[in-house]
Amino acid sequence: MAEKKPHLDESHAEAASGGIPQLDFSTWAGQIFWLIVIFAILYFVLAKFILPKLGNGLAERSDHIADDLDAASRFQKDAEEAEKAYTHALADARAKAHNVAETTRKSVDAEVATELEAAEAEAARQTDAAEARIKTLRDKAMSNIDEIAEKTADEIFTNFIGKSATPAKLKAALKSI
């Protein structure tokens, strides 16, 4: 039962005059009672409301950070894989391009070689034909020369001697020159 006293009690001060107030045991029961009440309330509030909230907040944050780190490492792995795929594709494309260039070069080379061969053969053939023609023309010319020389010699002979030489003798004479 609460009983209010109008005046502030001085009895404790008097009781303490003999020693320090801390050793005035008449105040102990009151102090300890209120300590227990107040401490219990404080403990209850802290343990039931404040500490779980603080602890959850901290746990949530560390979870969040761990999740984010996981996600970051996953993204990094993805990026690395993408880079690997990219370099792979690049290398493939390069090899393919190289192949194409090589085959094209080879076919072009072969074509050039065949055309060159054909051209050479054509050239050789034409050269042969030309040479043959030159040869016939020269032969013809040579035989014409013989004829002209014979005629000229016959005329010269006729003019000098006044009678024509026998063609067989003329020919033999011309040959011996």
């Binding site: 039962m1 609460a2 009983e3 209010k4 006293k5 502030l8 009690d9 404790h12 001060a13 303490a16 320090i20 107030p21 801390q22 005035d24 008449s26 105040t27 029961a29 009151g30 102090q31 009672f33 209120w34 300590l35 107040i38 401490f39």
Partner: peptide
């Protein structure tokens, strides 16, 4: 360090006044 009574309280025969000490604990 004087304990000064703010209001008196008796519980089960025990004198447990609310004092300046109790006030500052609160």
């Amino acid at each position: 360090f004087q304990i000064k009574k703010i209001f008196d309280l008796d519980l089960a025969g025990l004198n447990i006044p609310f004092t300046n000490s109790s006030l500052w604990m609160a």
